[in-house]
Simulated scan of single mutants.
Amino acid sequence: MTRRVRKAVFPVAGLGTRFLPATKLVAKEMLPIVDKPLIQYAVEEARKAGIEYCIFVTGRGKAVLVDHFDHAPELESLLRERGKTEPLDELLGGLPEPGTIVSTRQQEPLGLGHAVWCARSFVGDEPFAVILPDDLVMADRPCIGQLIEAWQETGGGNMLAVEEVPHDKTDKYGILDIASDNGRLAVAKGMVEKPKPENAPSNLAVIGRYVLDPLVMRTLENTPKGAGGEIQLTDAIAATIGKVPLHGYRFDGTRFDCGDKVGFIEANIAFGLQRSSMRGRLTEVIKDYSTKL
Protein backbone atom coordinates (compact mmCIF):
# COMPACT_ATOMS: atom_id res chain seq x y z
CA MET A 1 0.00 0.00 0.00
CA THR A 2 1.39 3.42 -0.96
CA ARG A 3 1.95 6.00 1.74
CA ARG A 4 -0.01 9.23 1.83
CA VAL A 5 1.51 12.38 0.35
CA ARG A 6 1.44 14.90 3.20
CA LYS A 7 4.14 17.41 2.26
CA ALA A 8 4.76 19.73 -0.66
CA VAL A 9 7.94 21.61 -1.53
CA PHE A 10 7.64 25.06 -3.12
CA PRO A 11 10.93 26.19 -4.72
CA VAL A 12 10.57 29.99 -4.52
CA ALA A 13 14.13 31.30 -4.36
CA GLY A 14 14.29 32.59 -7.97
CA LEU A 15 15.05 36.23 -8.67
CA GLY A 16 12.28 36.78 -11.24
CA THR A 17 14.59 38.63 -13.62
CA ARG A 18 12.11 38.36 -16.49
CA PHE A 19 9.77 40.68 -14.57
CA LEU A 20 12.23 43.40 -13.65
CA PRO A 21 11.84 46.14 -12.56
CA ALA A 22 8.59 44.93 -10.91
CA THR A 23 10.50 42.20 -9.05
CA LYS A 24 13.35 44.42 -7.87
CA LEU A 25 11.83 44.51 -4.38
CA VAL A 26 8.76 42.28 -4.77
CA ALA A 27 9.06 38.49 -4.89
CA LYS A 28 7.81 37.25 -8.26
CA GLU A 29 5.57 34.75 -6.44
CA MET A 30 3.76 37.73 -4.90
CA LEU A 31 2.71 39.09 -8.30
CA PRO A 32 -1.10 39.00 -8.40
CA ILE A 33 -3.41 37.07 -10.68
CA VAL A 34 -6.50 39.31 -10.37
CA ASP A 35 -6.32 39.83 -6.59
CA LYS A 36 -4.33 36.89 -5.19
CA PRO A 37 -0.58 36.33 -5.46
CA LEU A 38 0.74 33.31 -7.32
CA ILE A 39 2.01 31.70 -4.12
CA GLN A 40 -1.49 31.74 -2.62
CA TYR A 41 -2.96 29.93 -5.62
CA ALA A 42 -0.23 27.30 -5.25
CA VAL A 43 -0.78 26.80 -1.53
CA GLU A 44 -4.57 26.66 -1.95
CA GLU A 45 -4.13 24.00 -4.64
CA ALA A 46 -2.01 21.94 -2.26
CA ARG A 47 -4.45 22.28 0.62
CA LYS A 48 -7.43 21.28 -1.54
CA ALA A 49 -5.49 18.16 -2.52
CA GLY A 50 -5.00 17.13 1.10
CA ILE A 51 -1.42 18.36 1.53
CA GLU A 52 -0.81 19.07 5.23
CA TYR A 53 2.60 20.76 5.24
CA CYS A 54 4.00 23.36 2.84
CA ILE A 55 7.77 23.80 2.69
CA PHE A 56 9.03 27.02 1.10
CA VAL A 57 12.60 26.99 -0.22
CA THR A 58 13.35 30.70 -0.28
CA GLY A 59 16.23 33.09 -0.92
CA ARG A 60 17.21 36.56 0.21
CA GLY A 61 14.32 39.02 0.14
CA LYS A 62 11.66 36.29 0.13
CA ALA A 63 10.53 36.50 3.77
CA VAL A 64 7.35 38.18 2.54
CA LEU A 65 6.18 34.82 1.17
CA VAL A 66 6.01 33.39 4.68
CA ASP A 67 4.62 36.64 6.11
CA HIS A 68 1.75 36.52 3.61
CA PHE A 69 0.38 33.44 5.39
CA ASP A 70 0.51 35.02 8.84
CA HIS A 71 -1.94 37.33 10.61
CA ALA A 72 -1.80 41.07 9.89
CA PRO A 73 -3.27 42.38 13.20
CA GLU A 74 -3.41 46.08 12.27
CA LEU A 75 -5.06 45.46 8.91
CA GLU A 76 -7.49 42.92 10.33
CA SER A 77 -8.44 45.28 13.14
CA LEU A 78 -9.00 48.16 10.71
CA LEU A 79 -11.23 46.02 8.49
CA ARG A 80 -13.30 44.96 11.50
CA GLU A 81 -13.71 48.55 12.67
CA ARG A 82 -14.90 49.61 9.23
CA GLY A 83 -17.24 46.66 8.83
CA LYS A 84 -15.45 45.34 5.75
CA THR A 85 -16.36 41.73 6.37
CA GLU A 86 -15.84 40.42 2.83
CA PRO A 87 -12.14 41.37 2.47
CA LEU A 88 -11.57 40.31 6.10
CA ASP A 89 -13.04 36.89 5.40
CA GLU A 90 -10.81 36.65 2.32
CA LEU A 91 -7.75 37.41 4.42
CA LEU A 92 -8.59 34.99 7.20
CA GLY A 93 -9.75 32.26 4.83
CA GLY A 94 -6.30 32.17 3.24
CA LEU A 95 -4.51 31.46 6.49
CA PRO A 96 -3.27 27.88 7.02
CA GLU A 97 -3.25 26.08 10.34
CA PRO A 98 -0.39 27.15 12.65
CA GLY A 99 2.78 25.18 12.10
CA THR A 100 1.86 23.93 8.62
CA ILE A 101 4.09 26.32 6.65
CA VAL A 102 7.85 26.22 7.16
CA SER A 103 10.73 27.70 5.19
CA THR A 104 14.37 27.06 4.53
CA ARG A 105 16.99 28.90 2.48
CA GLN A 106 18.66 28.01 -0.80
CA GLN A 107 21.79 30.04 -0.23
CA GLU A 108 23.18 29.61 -3.74
CA PRO A 109 21.27 29.59 -7.07
CA LEU A 110 22.27 26.05 -8.03
CA GLY A 111 19.08 24.95 -9.77
CA LEU A 112 15.72 23.34 -9.13
CA GLY A 113 17.20 20.03 -7.99
CA HIS A 114 19.33 21.79 -5.41
CA ALA A 115 16.33 23.82 -4.22
CA VAL A 116 14.32 20.64 -3.67
CA TRP A 117 17.28 19.02 -1.89
CA CYS A 118 17.40 21.99 0.52
CA ALA A 119 14.03 20.76 1.89
CA ARG A 120 15.38 17.30 2.77
CA SER A 121 15.24 17.71 6.54
CA PHE A 122 11.58 18.68 6.43
CA VAL A 123 10.55 16.03 3.91
CA GLY A 124 12.33 13.13 5.62
CA ASP A 125 11.86 9.65 4.18
CA GLU A 126 8.39 10.30 2.77
CA PRO A 127 6.89 10.65 -0.70
CA PHE A 128 6.37 14.33 -1.40
CA ALA A 129 4.98 16.79 -3.90
CA VAL A 130 6.78 19.63 -5.66
CA ILE A 131 4.77 22.63 -6.84
CA LEU A 132 6.22 25.44 -8.96
CA PRO A 133 4.02 28.53 -8.46
CA ASP A 134 5.03 29.94 -11.86
CA ASP A 135 2.93 27.19 -13.44
CA LEU A 136 -0.64 28.16 -12.59
CA VAL A 137 -3.28 25.57 -13.48
CA MET A 138 -6.98 26.36 -13.85
CA ALA A 139 -8.81 23.11 -13.18
CA ASP A 140 -11.99 21.78 -11.59
CA ARG A 141 -9.86 19.40 -9.50
CA PRO A 142 -6.49 20.58 -8.17
CA CYS A 143 -3.74 19.52 -10.53
CA ILE A 144 -1.49 18.16 -7.78
CA GLY A 145 -4.48 16.22 -6.44
CA GLN A 146 -4.96 14.58 -9.84
CA LEU A 147 -1.31 13.52 -9.77
CA ILE A 148 -1.59 12.13 -6.25
CA GLU A 149 -4.60 10.04 -7.27
CA ALA A 150 -2.75 8.68 -10.32
CA TRP A 151 0.32 8.02 -8.17
CA GLN A 152 -1.76 6.01 -5.71
CA GLU A 153 -3.44 4.03 -8.50
CA THR A 154 -0.10 3.05 -10.05
CA GLY A 155 1.43 2.03 -6.72
CA GLY A 156 3.90 4.85 -6.19
CA GLY A 157 7.18 5.79 -7.81
CA ASN A 158 7.47 9.18 -9.54
CA MET A 159 4.48 10.88 -11.16
CA LEU A 160 4.99 14.04 -13.23
CA ALA A 161 2.44 16.39 -14.77
CA VAL A 162 3.00 16.57 -18.53
CA GLU A 163 1.58 18.23 -21.61
CA GLU A 164 2.46 18.11 -25.27
CA VAL A 165 4.44 21.09 -26.55
CA PRO A 166 5.49 22.10 -30.07
CA HIS A 167 8.62 20.23 -31.15
CA ASP A 168 10.55 23.47 -31.55
CA LYS A 169 9.95 24.29 -27.85
CA THR A 170 11.45 21.13 -26.32
CA ASP A 171 14.61 23.01 -25.33
CA LYS A 172 12.57 24.86 -22.72
CA TYR A 173 11.39 21.77 -20.78
CA GLY A 174 12.27 18.42 -19.32
CA ILE A 175 11.12 15.89 -21.94
CA LEU A 176 10.06 12.29 -21.36
CA ASP A 177 11.39 9.33 -23.33
CA ILE A 178 8.26 7.20 -23.65
CA ALA A 179 8.06 3.41 -23.34
CA SER A 180 4.25 3.25 -23.60
CA ASP A 181 1.37 5.70 -23.60
CA ASN A 182 -2.39 5.19 -23.29
CA GLY A 183 -3.24 8.83 -23.97
CA ARG A 184 -3.61 9.75 -20.31
CA LEU A 185 -0.73 8.01 -18.56
CA ALA A 186 2.69 7.54 -20.13
CA VAL A 187 5.31 5.12 -18.85
CA ALA A 188 8.75 6.68 -19.26
CA LYS A 189 12.07 4.92 -19.80
CA GLY A 190 14.04 8.12 -19.52
CA MET A 191 13.93 11.90 -19.48
CA VAL A 192 16.15 14.67 -20.80
CA GLU A 193 16.48 18.24 -19.56
CA LYS A 194 15.91 20.87 -22.29
CA PRO A 195 16.98 18.85 -25.34
CA LYS A 196 17.39 20.49 -28.71
CA PRO A 197 14.37 19.72 -30.94
CA GLU A 198 16.41 17.40 -33.15
CA ASN A 199 17.51 15.39 -30.10
CA ALA A 200 14.21 15.34 -28.17
CA PRO A 201 12.86 11.80 -27.57
CA SER A 202 9.25 13.11 -27.63
CA ASN A 203 7.31 16.33 -27.23
CA LEU A 204 5.83 15.33 -23.87
CA ALA A 205 7.02 18.06 -21.53
CA VAL A 206 7.13 18.10 -17.74
CA ILE A 207 5.43 21.10 -16.11
CA GLY A 208 5.68 22.28 -12.53
CA ARG A 209 3.84 19.54 -10.63
CA TYR A 210 5.56 16.41 -9.29
CA VAL A 211 4.82 13.58 -6.87
CA LEU A 212 8.15 12.00 -5.98
CA ASP A 213 9.48 8.94 -4.23
CA PRO A 214 11.87 9.70 -1.35
CA LEU A 215 14.58 7.98 -3.39
CA VAL A 216 14.74 11.16 -5.50
CA MET A 217 15.72 13.21 -2.47
CA ARG A 218 18.48 10.75 -1.59
CA THR A 219 19.66 10.74 -5.22
CA LEU A 220 19.90 14.53 -5.29
CA GLU A 221 22.62 14.26 -2.64
CA ASN A 222 25.07 13.07 -5.31
CA THR A 223 23.58 14.50 -8.50
CA PRO A 224 26.23 16.50 -10.42
CA LYS A 225 25.57 19.76 -12.20
CA GLY A 226 23.79 19.27 -15.51
CA ALA A 227 22.18 21.56 -18.08
CA GLY A 228 22.95 25.22 -17.50
CA GLY A 229 25.56 24.33 -14.89
CA GLU A 230 22.79 23.65 -12.37
CA ILE A 231 21.71 20.61 -10.35
CA GLN A 232 18.67 19.44 -12.30
CA LEU A 233 15.71 17.72 -10.69
CA THR A 234 15.12 15.87 -13.95
CA ASP A 235 18.60 14.29 -13.73
CA ALA A 236 17.87 12.94 -10.25
CA ILE A 237 14.47 11.59 -11.33
CA ALA A 238 16.03 9.94 -14.40
CA ALA A 239 18.64 8.28 -12.18
CA THR A 240 15.89 6.47 -10.25
CA ILE A 241 14.39 4.82 -13.37
CA GLY A 242 14.66 1.07 -12.98
CA LYS A 243 14.46 1.41 -9.22
CA VAL A 244 11.03 3.02 -9.06
CA PRO A 245 8.48 3.59 -11.88
CA LEU A 246 8.28 6.90 -13.72
CA HIS A 247 4.98 8.09 -15.19
CA GLY A 248 3.86 11.22 -16.98
CA TYR A 249 0.23 12.20 -16.39
CA ARG A 250 -1.82 14.37 -18.73
CA PHE A 251 -3.85 16.41 -16.26
CA ASP A 252 -7.26 17.98 -16.78
CA GLY A 253 -7.02 21.75 -16.81
CA THR A 254 -5.33 24.72 -18.45
CA ARG A 255 -1.79 25.63 -17.54
CA PHE A 256 -0.53 29.22 -17.64
CA ASP A 257 3.20 29.93 -17.71
CA CYS A 258 3.28 32.87 -15.32
CA GLY A 259 7.06 33.06 -15.52
CA ASP A 260 6.46 34.54 -18.97
CA LYS A 261 5.00 38.03 -19.39
CA VAL A 262 2.40 37.05 -21.98
CA GLY A 263 1.47 33.93 -19.99
CA PHE A 264 1.07 36.08 -16.88
CA ILE A 265 -1.25 38.51 -18.66
CA GLU A 266 -3.19 35.60 -20.19
CA ALA A 267 -3.71 34.13 -16.71
CA ASN A 268 -5.05 37.43 -15.41
CA ILE A 269 -7.54 37.60 -18.29
CA ALA A 270 -8.63 33.97 -17.90
CA PHE A 271 -9.07 34.14 -14.12
CA GLY A 272 -10.75 37.54 -14.41
CA LEU A 273 -13.27 36.18 -16.91
CA GLN A 274 -14.01 33.37 -14.47
CA ARG A 275 -15.33 35.94 -11.96
CA SER A 276 -19.00 36.67 -12.59
CA SER A 277 -18.56 40.13 -11.06
CA MET A 278 -15.87 41.03 -13.59
CA ARG A 279 -16.80 39.04 -16.71
CA GLY A 280 -19.11 41.55 -18.37
CA ARG A 281 -16.90 44.62 -18.00
CA LEU A 282 -13.71 42.69 -18.81
CA THR A 283 -15.26 41.28 -21.97
CA GLU A 284 -16.16 44.82 -23.05
CA VAL A 285 -12.61 46.02 -22.39
CA ILE A 286 -11.11 43.17 -24.43
CA LYS A 287 -13.47 43.82 -27.32
CA ASP A 288 -12.77 47.53 -27.18
CA TYR A 289 -9.01 47.10 -27.34
CA SER A 290 -9.20 44.41 -30.03
CA THR A 291 -10.99 46.84 -32.35
CA LYS A 292 -8.26 49.45 -31.81
CA LEU A 293 -5.40 47.19 -32.87
Rank of each mutant, 00 (worst) to 15 (best):
A115G: 12
K24P: 01
G259W: 08
G190M: 08
G253K: 13
C118F: 01
A227Q: 08
F256Q: 10
G59S: 15
E163S: 05
A42N: 09
K24D: 12
L147D: 05
N203D: 01
H71K: 07
D288V: 04
E284Y: 00
F271H: 10
T104L: 14
T104S: 11
V26E: 00
L136V: 04
T58G: 06
H114P: 03
T154H: 02
A139P: 01
W117R: 15
R209E: 05
E149M: 14
G94A: 14
T104A: 12
L92K: 10
A205S: 08
K24L: 14
D235E: 09
G259S: 14
A63R: 14
L31K: 07
P98D: 06
A239Q: 14
L293F: 03
L246E: 07
I286C: 03
C54M: 15
V137T: 09
I33M: 12
P21E: 14
L31N: 05
E164I: 00
T23L: 05
K36N: 13
V244Q: 11
F264D: 05
A188K: 05
T240N: 09
V165L: 11
S276G: 12
A49Q: 07
M138L: 15
S276N: 10
P133F: 02
Q146W: 03
L15W: 09
L204R: 04
P197I: 00
S290K: 09
G226L: 11
P127D: 06
V57F: 00
M191V: 03
L15N: 14
Y173I: 05
L220W: 10
E52C: 05
V116M: 12
G208M: 02
G263I: 06
G113T: 06
L88S: 08
I175C: 03
Q152M: 15
P109N: 15
R82N: 08
S276I: 05
A27S: 15
P166A: 11
E44G: 08
E153A: 03
I269Y: 03
D235R: 04
V26Q: 01
V162G: 02
G111I: 09
R120E: 07
G111N: 10
G155M: 05
V137F: 07
E198R: 15
V285Q: 12
G280R: 10
L75D: 06
L92A: 08
A46Y: 00
R250K: 10
I178G: 12
Q146E: 07
S277F: 06
L147Q: 07
V9F: 13
A129I: 04
A27R: 12
D140K: 14
H247D: 02
T85P: 01
V285F: 09
T58Y: 03
G14K: 07
V211G: 11
W117M: 15
R18A: 14
V123D: 11
D89P: 02
P197F: 00
Q274T: 06
K225H: 00
L78Q: 12
G190V: 02
D288Q: 04
L220Y: 10
A239P: 08
V216I: 13
P37N: 05
E163T: 02
C143M: 09
G83C: 04
V57M: 06
L132P: 01
G16V: 07
R120V: 06
A72V: 08
G83K: 02
A49Y: 02
T23D: 05
G111M: 12
